[in-house]
């Protein structure tokens, strides 16, 4: 197992080594030591490998991730798993602003809390947060699921498209065009599957409420024809 100590090795060297891994690589488990809040750790990995980061990271960790499974044994700075395509990113601690922003696929699990703008403009990524999320989360969220076991801050789902939001605790306020929706069987099923994948067993899917788009903002409405100019 390659072990890369960022106290000895430069970040570019680490990321170049990770980028050189292809789909059939034998080096399937990597360990990164002493990240000490570094930016862009394990960004752009494109191979089915596991990367274990032993400590807290700064901006953009595991951004653009494809296929890899990245675990942060600490907290993550702004933009963790930003624009993720596939694979899995797990943060053992908290995540800062815009976790999972614009993500197209894969699963992001935050075992602590996420701060503001979690899942902003998400486009298919699934995000599971064990704790709570901050304000303006899922802003303009287009597709995918955001699961929050704790509470959500102000303006959840403002200007949301078709992403599905599940919150177990309190929602401080809903953003424009975001409403509570009926939790049907298929939603409970999808939510349970996400909780299972995240390894969360002490929380019941039936305790959550579902939120989504009222579809009044992004659809053409003949009643508002004059306003479109």
């Amino acid at each position: 197992m390659p072990v890369i100590d960022l106290a000895q090795t430069g970040l570019r060297e680490l990321n170049a080594a990770l980028h050189s891994q292809g789909s059939g690589t034998n080096e399937t488990l990597w360990e990164v030591l002493n990240p000490r809040g570094s930016h862009a750790v394990a960004v752009g990995v494109n191979a089915p490998i596991a990367v274990e980061i032993k400590g807290s990271v700064g901006y953009y960790c595991a951004g653009m991730n494809r296929e890899a499974s990245v675990t942060v044994y600490g907290s993550a700075g702004p933009g963790v798993a930003e624009n993720m395509m596939s694979g899995e990113v797990r943060v053992k601690g908290d995540a800062s602003q815009y976790a999972g922003a614009t993500g197209k696929g894969g699963l992001l699990i935050i075992e602590g809390n996420a701060s503001s703008r979690c899942g902003i403009s998400m486009k298919g990524i699934d995000i599971v947060v064990r704790g709570s999320i901050g304000h303006m989360s899922a802003f303009m969220a287009q597709a995918g699921h955001l699961v929050v076991c704790g509470d959500a801050g102000d303006a959840l789902g403002d200007s949301i498209y078709e992403a599905k939001l599940f919150v177990r605790g309190a929602v401080k306020s809903l953003g424009a065009d975001c409403i509570e929706k009926e939790m049907r069987g298929e939603h409970l099923h999808a939510l349970q599957a996400l909780l299972n994948r995240a390894g969360i067993v002490d929380v019941k899917a039936s305790d959550f409420k579902r939120y989504g788009s009222a579809r009044k903002l992004y659809n053409f409405s003949v009643d508002h024809a004059d306003a479109y100019g």
């Binding site: 809040g37 700064g58 901006y59 907290s75 800062s96």
Partner: peptide
Amino acid sequence: SEYRALVNLPGIEAARVWE
């Protein structure tokens, strides 16, 4: 401004760190 600024402080590993 970032966690990087705090990593050399004594006992930071056990500190309560939050945003």
